[in-house]
């Protein structure tokens, strides 16, 4: 299994503030990687560079052997940390929108997920609750047959039942030929999903490794390690 993502010496500065500082990371294909860190640790900046929404100040990023650009955008399915659909849309419109934009959108899978999430196509985006919106966004993102899924805070701000539903959808739609990057600070709820974890602080990697190996080595859950690493 090769590396789907290779990040070498990546830095990003916002004027004088360093958001990412000389960060290097490889992600194998078929792995679920959790990027963990408190607010402002650089998680979203890293993801925005991977998705081509921001340009790095220094360093290199390769996805499936290519620089970030048109090709990588066609194989990366990205869930932003906020709703990305227009309020005037119905769910049906959102489906058409995605179908037009992405050739790898699998409508069949989308319908099944929609059903699983108990959403109806004639619902209006403006009338959805936060949890329903999150579910719809995730439905669209997971319905693409992408090589890399990037989920930015997929369960932030939803109730525990919706959370379980979202975790189910992620597990059921993950397959060995694609990788997933998930950022979160809700470590306890998501830790059983990760193959690898990366702890990020102030734009640098504090600790990374196989999740099970870390549990074995430290005799602690990832959640406890998180608290130890980031606790004052």
């Amino acid at each position: 299994m090769g590396n789907l993502v290779e990040i070498k010496g990546l830095s990003k500065n916002y004027l004088s503030k360093k958001a990412l500082n000389n960060l290097s990371l490889d992600i194998e294909s078929g792995k679920v990687v959790g990027i963990l860190g408190p607010n402002g640790s650089g998680k979203t900046t890293l993801i925005k560079i991977l998705t081509g929404l921001l340009r790095q100040s220094k360093g290199e990023v390769f996805i499936d052997g290519h620089n970030v650009g048109v090709y990588t955008k066609s194989i990366v399915s990205y869930l932003p940390d906020r709703n990305f659909l227009y309020n005037w849309m119905t769910i049906d419109d959102a489906f058409k929108f995605y179908k037009d934009f992405y050739s790898d959108f699998d409508e069949n899978r989308g319908e099944k997920l929609l059903d699983f999430m108990k959403l109806e196509k004639n619902m209006k985006i403006s009338s959805l609750s936060k949890g329903m919106n999150e579910k719809l966004n995730l439905t669209l993102v997971l319905s693409r047959r992408a090589k890399l899924y990037i989920l930015d805070e997929p369960i932030a701000g939803v109730d525990p039942v919706a959370r379980d539903k979202i975790l189910d959808a992620i597990i059921n739609n993950y397959n060995e030929s694609s990788s997933m990057i998930i950022t979160t600070h809700l470590v306890r709820d998501m830790e059983s999903l990760f193959d690898e974890v990366v702890f990020l602080r102030e734009g640098e990697i504090l600790l990374k490794g196989n999740a099970e190996a870390l549990r074995e080595e430290k005799g602690k859950s990832i959640d406890e390690i998180y608290k130890e690493v980031f606790g004052e």
């Binding site: 059921n172 993950y174 999903l193």
Partner: peptide, 17 residues
């Protein structure tokens, strides 16, 4: 593997192991 990973909400690779 997939059924159990979905039931227990863990990564399929973990169940495989």
């Amino acid at each position: 593997v997939r059924e159990l990973s979905s039931e227990l909400k863990v990564n399929p690779n973990t169940v495989q192991r």
